[in-house]
C-alpha cells in the first residue's frame, strides 16, 4: 500500500501537464514487495512498483538484472516466493495463465514465439479466441455461436493486422514473414486478446532506427487507444522517447523509479546502466 502513495505523488504533480494520462492514477498492476528465489539464487529482491492505467512504463536494467523474470512473474509464469502481484486489484498467483490473459493482460516475447505453421491471420485469431466460448459441441455441430464468433474473430484479426501494417501478408505462414513483420504480428496477436495491459518484451530488438521509429509510433497509438503499456527495452533512446515513467532494475533490485529525465540523471542508474559509454545507443 505504501508504494501507491509514495511513488507517484511527487513526479506526477510536477509533470502532470506533460504526462496527462498519468493523472488518473488508477493502479492497474501492483508489484508488491516481490521476492523470487530459484534455489539459492535471488532473481528478484523486494521489487516494488505500481503500474497506472493509461501510462507507458519502461522497465530497464542491464543484462541479467531480472527484467524478464519480473515480466514472467507479472504474467503468472513464475510464482513469487514472497510478496504478491495484483492485477486490477486481484491477486495473480494461483490463477491459470489463460485466465490472466482473459483478465486483460497480454504479452509478447523477447525471442519471438509465434505459431510458425499457422498463417498470420490464424495467429491473431488464436488471440481473439481468448474471449470466445465455442467449444467442441458448437464447432462440431456448427451452431450459430461458432459462426458468430468465427466472423467476429476474423474481422478483428484483419483489423489488427491492418493496424500493425501487415494485412497484405495475412495468408502467409508466420514462419515465412520477415523478422520485423513477425514482431508486428506478435503485437497484433497480443492485442487481439483485448488487453488492458500490454507487456512488450524488448519489441525493438534487432530493429534498425527507422523501424524503431515506426515501432514508437505504434506503441503510442496503442496507448492512445486506452491500453496501458509495459515496455522492457534495452535501447535507451527508445525508452526515453516513449515512456511516461521508468523503473530500473539491477541485480534483481529496484534501484530507481521516476520520469525518464529523472532516471537518466540518477547517479545510481548512470553507474549501473548508463555509465557505459554507449549511452545514446
Amino acid at each position: 500500500m505504501s508504494d501507491t502513495e509514495q511513488t507517484p505523488a511527487v513526479p506526477a504533480q510536477a509533470a502532470a501537464p506533460a504526462v496527462e494520462t498519468v493523472r488518473e492514477r488508477e493502479p492497474l498492476l501492483e508489484v508488491d514487495h516481490v521476492t523470487l528465489r530459484f534455489g539459492g539464487v535471488v532473481a528478484l529482491n523486494d521489487v516494488d512498483f505500481t503500474l497506472y492505467k493509461g501510462e507507458i512504463l519502461g522497465l530497464i536494467g542491464p543484462n541479467g538484472a531480472g527484467k524478464t523474470t519480473c515480466f514472467n512473474a507479472m504474467t503468472g509464469i513464475y510464482q513469487p516466493t514472497e510478496g504478491q502481484i495484483r492485477f486490477r486489484g486481484e491477486k495473480i498467483s494461483g490463477k491459470k495463465r489463460h485466465q490472466i490473459t482473459r483478465m486483460g493482460m497480454a504479452r509478447t516475447f523477447q525471442n519471438i514465439r509465434l505459431f510458425p505453421e499457422m498463417t498470420a491471420l490464424e495467429n491473431v485469431q488464436v488471440g481473439a479466441d481468448a474471449h470466445h466460448k465455442t467449444s467442441v459441441i458448437s464447432a462440431l455441430l456448427r451452431l450459430p455461436r461458432h459462426w458468430k464468433e468465427e466472423r467476429e474473430g476474423r474481422e478483428k484479426a484483419e483489423r489488427l493486422l491492418e493496424f500493425v501494417g501487415i494485412r497484405k501478408r495475412m495468408h502467409e505462414f508466420a514462419r515465412n514473414l520477415s523478422y520485423g513483420e513477425q514482431r508486428r504480428l506478435e503485437i497484433a496477436r497480443a492485442l487481439a486478446t483485448d488487453p488492458v495491459l500490454l507487456c512488450l518484451d524488448e519489441p525493438a530488438a534487432g530493429f534498425n532506427p527507422a523501424e524503431k521509429e515506426e515501432l514508437l509510433q505504434l506503441i503510442r497509438q496503442i496507448r492512445d487507444q486506452g491500453v496501458t503499456v509495459l515496455l522492457i527495452e534495452h535501447d535507451m533512446r527508445l525508452v526515453m522517447g516513449v515512456t511516461d515513467r521508468i523503473v530500473v532494475l539491477e541485480f534483481g533490485k529496484k534501484i530507481a523509479e521516476g520520469l525518464p529525465a529523472e532516471v537518466r540523471d540518477n547517479p545510481k542508474v548512470v553507474a549501473a546502466y548508463l555509465g557505459v559509454p554507449d549511452d545514446a545507443a
Binding site: 490473459t101 482473459r102 505459431f115 505453421e117 488464436v126 488471440g127 479466441d129
Partner: peptide, 14 residues
C-alpha cells in the same frame, strides 16, 4: 494447432 506449435505461447494467448 497452437498447442502443437508452442504450448506456452498458446497458454499466454488465452
Amino acid at each position: 494447432i497452437s498447442i502443437r506449435e508452442d504450448e506456452d505461447a498458446a497458454q499466454l494467448m488465452g
